[in-house]
């Protein structure tokens, strides 16, 4: 698997700073789970945070702060923190944690023309959803009002800009109007997140709300 389309520096830095909406963080965490290049880049932005912490201001802690911390350690010691390594399946771990399992756990809702979707998270004004696009199908022409991140989990899609396979992420801004088409070989499953407000809860093409424009 060769990932060609990566996260932007701005997204990775915002993730390191902890300021991304949860929906975007989910896309970043999922892509990083699949992409060591972006994992290393994310690590370098974390190191900036570490450098700032090191150089940054100090605030005096209370006299009993260390003692209180030791007491806290004694309380929590029994539950030893464990790593959360890769889990089997199509969905990387951060998504499985969110969905509650792999593909079979996703609660799909029809979105028209054979396309299905499952909304995952809508905290902080941004929305994350899983999309299921049948092989060879096109997603109707749509624009974006904020930033839209689309991460491929299975299959591939192609639009005016390029082809996106598993692990690739497309970072689209308001200027991009595109018609993604799923590759013919396999149904395409994507994780999509947008920071534009959600305007409708079901797919109503008659209301001139082109598919996915949320």
């Amino acid at each position: 698997m060769t990932i060609k389309h990566h996260l932007t520096d701005a997204l990775l830095m915002s993730y390191a700073a902890g300021t991304l909406p949860e929906a975007f963080s989910l896309v970043v965490a999922t892509h990083v789970s699949m992409c060591d290049e972006c994992r290393a880049r994310a690590g370098s932005f974390d190191a900036v945070g570490g450098g700032l912490l090191e150089e940054g201001p100090v605030a005096a802690v209370s006299a009993d702060c260390l003692a209180a911390t030791m007491a806290l350690i004694r309380e929590t010691k029994a539950e030893r923190a464990e790593r959360k390594p890769r889990v089997a399946g199509v969905l990387p771990r951060p998504l499985q944690d969110c969905v509650g399992g792999d593909l079979s756990a996703i609660k799909w809702r029809p979105a028209g023309l054979g396309v299905k979707q499952a909304i995952l998270s809508t905290a902080d004004g941004a929305t994350a959803r899983l999309l299921y696009i049948p092989a060879g199908s096109a997603v109707p022409d749509h624009g974006h009002r904020g930033t839209e991140l689309t991460l491929v989990l299975q299959g591939a899609f192609r639009d005016q800009t390029d082809r996106f396979g598993r692990g690739d992420v497309e970072v689209a801004d308001e200027d991009l109007k595109h018609t993604p088409v799923a590759d013919i070989g396999e149904d395409c499953i994507c994780l999509a997140a947008t920071d534009a407000p959600l305007r409708f809860s079901s797919w109503l093409p008659r209301l001139a709300q082109p598919f996915l424009k949320i």
Partner: peptide, 22 residues
């Protein structure tokens, strides 16, 4: 820094920040 940042997010959102698999 990463522990402090994640704790800050957990406190503010009352939920966990999505983290990459280890």
């Amino acid at each position: 820094y990463t522990i402090a940042r994640n704790r800050r997010i957990d406190v503010a959102r009352r939920n966990r920040r999505p983290e990459p698999e280890d």
